[in-house]
Write a protein that binds this DNA or RNA. Structure first.
Length: 317
DNA sequence: TGGGAAAACCGCCAGG
DNA sequence: AACCTGGCGGTTTTCC
């Protein structure tokens, strides 16, 4: 769903990931681009125009609705679009927003009571204009089941590939990502942001159960033998299945989940590193510091400090 | 930061 | 024949 004046990039992400024919991957998406008033739409900056052939009836037709951006923050979209989005959500369609598209979904009341992502520059504004909506400015995207939102432009790619993974499995997502010469998922390393881990629809039950258990009990020991038992598999087979689902080994995955939790606690609380280590399943603060440094190239306390500073800047501007 | 015990990882292979 | 499973053991990684 695009406004009369649209951003080429956001629309382009949706087109690239979902609309390009991919005969080698079997059944693919049928995509319709629509606007409140079908006809000529201008690219932002006026460098070219596009012909939009569908009106809001396409929203009623779709199983998945992508809103790549808002027309403006003051008036995110035409009333007819907002109404159609509300209808689509009501009947159970999957609603997706990129960047400022979250403002449009919010206007339709779809984000009420949810935690969502949007461009960091507008996160505060979204939270202010829609008090029912919780905004998390620190993630690339948030998968809320039937409602998925993503942050600034680049995150649209991450969310789109995530959806691909949900629909068609990790292999297909990797294939498309490789074609676009983009890492299939960003994590650790340089990236300061992270996605929420969600198993595919076709994840083996045992692995799913083990992941759920692990997510709930990150502060426990969590040996691989234990997890394998919960999945009713041998340790050997469990690691194999686990890798197919998550792309990493169980220990690596657990470690990463713990580090995510550590980062949250560093950002949101004043607990000591010692204390955080205890409640996140690290046996000692020393171990935590080592792992943290390797993953994020800083120490926990330095991370907390720089996070506070950049948060302060954001408030100031 | 270093060292060493313990755990995890993974190729390989036999059996279902 | 094609596939999945689980054990073995050598190597790597973790963590105190």
């Amino acid at each position: 769903v695009v406004p009369a004046e649209f951003s080429p990039f956001e629309l382009g992400v949706a087109a690239e990931v979902f609309a390009l024919p991919r005969p080698e991957l079997g059944e693919w998406y049928e995509v319709r681009v629509c606007a409140a008033c079908p006809g000529i739409a201008r690219a932002r900056g006026g460098i070219f125009t596009a012909s939009i052939s569908h009106g809001v009836e396409a929203i009623d037709w779709a199983e998945t609705v992508i809103v790549p951006e808002a027309a403006t923050l003051d008036d995110p979209a035409d009333d007819v679009v907002v109404a159609a989005l509300a209808r689509a959500h009501e009947r159970g369609a999957r609603m997706v927003s990129y960047c400022t598209g979250a403002f449009v979904l919010a206007a339709a009341g779809i984000l009420d009571g949810r935690t969502v992502a949007t461009h960091w520059r507008h996160a505060a504004r979204l939270a202010r204009d829609y008090p029912q909506v919780t905004v998390d400015p620190n993630v690339l995207y948030i998968d809320g089941g039937k409602v998925l939102t993503s942050a600034g432009s680049g995150a649209a790619i991450d969310l789109s590939l995530h959806i691909l993974r949900q629909d068609h499995g990790a292999r297909v997502a990797r294939h498309v990502a490789r074609g676009m010469v983009i890492p299939p998922h960003r994590d650790g390393g340089q990236a300061q942001f992270v996605m929420s881990p969600v198993p595919d629809a076709d994840t083996p039950d045992g692995v799913r159960a083990a992941i759920e258990y692990a997510t709930e009990h990150l502060d426990d020991g969590l040996s691989i033998a234990d997890l394998a038992a919960r999945a009713f598999m041998s340790p050997r087979n469990f690691s194999r299945r686990f890798r197919e689902v998550t792309g990493t080994t169980p220990k690596q995955w657990i470690l990463f989940q713990r580090l995510i939790r550590v980062r949250e606690l560093l950002e949101e609380t004043e607990h000591s590193v010692e204390h955080i280590a205890r409640v996140t399943g690290f046996g000692s603060a020393v171990t935590l510091r080592q792992r943290f440094a390797r993953a994020f190239c800083t120490s926990p306390s330095a991370y907390r400090k720089s996070f506070r500073e950049s948060a302060a800047e954001r408030v100031a501007s």
